[in-house]
């Protein structure tokens, strides 16, 4: 039987259903796992995504994009296959794609995490025969501490800055990570300001029923505002720009899974690096692969080769699934060198 999914120059393609999953070129029909720029490319004729993610996706693709939606778990028939989307726990509206034909099941995880996140539905384990998994943090050096520990570190940094009468500027990805941070930090410490790119997304999150603390759009603050003691959440692209001048003296921090590594932390010209990722760490990746029941695992998006080798040495049938290099497309992608494949984190 031919494979349910194959790679083409435009990306992952399902011949029996005649659609692509997260294609990197314009195609007639695309299923999108989530709105990060390395997964959602504009220009396709039709998009399918989960209802919770539609609004975010349309701000990313532009108002002219034709987006159809389904609910999580709702099976739909496309050509010869049945397709359903399942929570990936990565960001609001992120999905895994389940594809079935005659009892054979494939799952494309997209980006995912199994750790707690108050801003999106928890990861749902979907059993399958073939699993296409991401591997952004697919090395055993990546083991996340509990997110509550990271939030405690951020809160204590914020408190320290507050008592030193300076502002705290927190850099993070604007979609997903920023909202997760907002939901996790202790809003009683002081006022929370957001960069415009983040504030727009906050609104969409709130519209979807996600509880976020009160935030102020930096652009709405009067020229005389003192930012001492407050926290400002800004996209990574704002680092080193004149936009920061208005905050007076501040301490800066960067939040990302890459901050786990000291070298990556030190390269960022910020005062602090906090480890918090929206991707699965090594134990979580292995756990998902194990419990999915998949015999065959295709690895993409990250530390592909070591992950494939490890799986093959441990009883799986694994192979790499190479995607096109798409680093540094916009601020959601990590312009990092610690992350050669380039993606959000």
């Amino acid at each position: 039987m031919p494979d349910l999914l194959v790679t083409t120059p435009s990306g992952l393609y399902c011949p029996s259903g005649d659609f692509h999953v997260d294609p990197w070129r314009a195609v007639p029909s695309a299923i999108i796992t989530h709105a990060h720029s390395d997964h959602a490319t504009a220009g396709s004729a039709r998009y399918l995504t989960v209802d919770e993610g539609a609004k975010v996706l349309s701000t990313r693709l532009g108002p002219e994009a034709l987006i159809q939606t389904v609910r999580y778990g709702e099976p739909i028939r496309i050509g010869d296959v049945t397709v359903s989307l399942h929570p990936a726990g990565h960001i609001l509206g992120s999905s895994q794609v389940r594809i079935e034909r005659g009892g054979e099941v494939w799952v494309v995880t997209g980006d995912y995490k199994t750790a707690h996140d108050a801003t999106c539905r928890p990861f749902e384990l979907v059993r399958c025969h073939t699993l296409i998994t991401e591997s952004t943090f697919g090395l055993p050096i990546y083991r996340w501490q509990h997110p509550s520990k990271t939030f405690a570190e951020i809160n204590s940094w914020w408190e320290t800055n507050k008592s030193a009468k300076i502002a705290s500027v927190l850099f993070s990805y604007s979609l997903g990570k920023a909202q997760r941070l907002l939901s996790g930090i202790d809003a009683s410490i002081g006022p929370i300001y957001c960069h415009g790119a983040i504030e727009r997304l906050n609104q969409i999150y709130r519209d979807n029923g996600v509880l976020l603390p009160e935030t102020i759009y930096v652009g709405d603050a009067s020229r005389k505002t003192s930012f001492a003691g407050s926290i400002i959440v800004a996209p990574t692209s704002a680092r080193g720009t004149p936009w920061l001048r208005r905050f007076g003296e501040f301490s800066s921090a960067y939040v990302s899974g890459w901050m786990q590594i000291r070298g990556a932390r030190r390269r960022r010209a910020v005062d602090r690096g906090f480890t918090l990722s929206d991707h699965a760490d090594w134990p979580a990746l292995l756990d998902v692969i194990q419990t999915s029941g998949a015999e065959r695992v295709l690895v993409t998006h990250g530390f592909v080769d070591p992950m494939v080798r490890w799986l093959n040495e441990n009883g799986w049938q694994a192979a790499p699934l190479h995607t096109e290099f798409r680093g540094e497309l916009d601020e959601t992608s990590e312009p990092s060198t610690a992350n050669p494949e380039g993606s959000d984190s």
Partner: peptide, 26 residues
């Protein structure tokens, strides 16, 4: 002690760039 094969250890070492830190992380 970390129960990883040597090749994977080397892979990690290359990614981290520092032996002491690699072991601490593993």
């Amino acid at each position: 002690v970390a129960a990883v094969p040597m090749w994977l250890f080397e892979e990690c070492h290359e990614s981290v760039g520092d032996l002491a830190e690699t072991i601490a992380l593993l």
